[in-house]
């Protein structure tokens, strides 16, 4: 199942690249001779990413850090960012993380969040740290929960051409699940994500 998802994403990324190459050959010559900001106000970046997510651990109600009991997940994600100026971008993201627990249960986490990004233009590279704030839908067997999510990280991208960039994304997420009664059930999950991405410059 996970292999199928990875193959599907690879094909999708390849398709994105090919369509971009078809659409933008005329601009390659200009790119070598024209000085311009990598990102302009109003630019939109659509990013498709796939990779893995690791459970770092849980912070329990007593303040102890306990193992996450999760195998590395297959993760897929989609994000859209719109530049407000040459550096700041605002957007949203949605992703799906497919974990298996050490007791062989399937845990699915679907974060969705608003995302604020600052892009450092190092043309043809860009480093784009971000912070995202949103919610995460969590499903474990017949249990479901909706919890807040905070994610910080950075994208390291290489501009393949004027329309497509490839990148490595590293992030850390915090998903607290809070119980007022009994409070000892409260846990906060820390995740580390590493994905490869293809970004289409709309």
């Amino acid at each position: 199942m996970r292999l199928r998802i990875m193959i599907l994403l690879s094909v999708a990324c390849l398709g994105l690249q090919l369509s971009a190459e078809d659409a933008a050959p005329a601009s390659d010559g200009l790119a070598n001779t024209t000085v311009f900001e990598m990102f302009q106000p109003g630019d939109a970046l659509l990013t498709l990413s796939a990779g893995t997510s690791l459970g770092i651990g849980f912070l329990d109600a007593t303040g102890q850090f306990v193992p996450a009991n999760l195998d590395p997940a297959v993760s897929i994600g989609l994000s859209l960012s719109i530049f407000l100026d040459n550096h700041w971008a605002l957007g949203g993201e949605f992703s799906g993380l497919f974990f298996t627990t050490i007791a062989d249960r399937q845990y699915f986490c679907a974060p969705f969040a608003a995302r604020l990004t600052y892009a450092f233009d190092l043309d043809p590279f860009a480093i784009s740290p971000f912070v995202a704030l949103g919610m995460a839908v969590n499903v474990l067997d017949d249990m479901r929960s909706l919890n807040p999510l905070v994610r910080v990280g950075s994208a390291f991208t290489w501009r393949f051409n004027t329309e497509v960039s490839y990148g490595l994304n590293l992030d850390c997420s915090l998903i607290p699940e809070i119980y007022a009664d009994p409070a000892y059930q409260s846990h906060a999950l820390f995740l580390f994500g590493a994905t490869l991405s293809a970004t289409y410059h709309l």
Binding site: A68, L140, M143, S145, L146, N147, P148, A180
Partner: peptide
Amino acid sequence: MLLASTACNPGYLGLFASIAGENDFR
């Protein structure tokens, strides 16, 4: 976000607490 976090966890045990309480018997 706080309300959603505290109100949407039915069952006898928190979802994260459930995972944290697992034993590895694989």
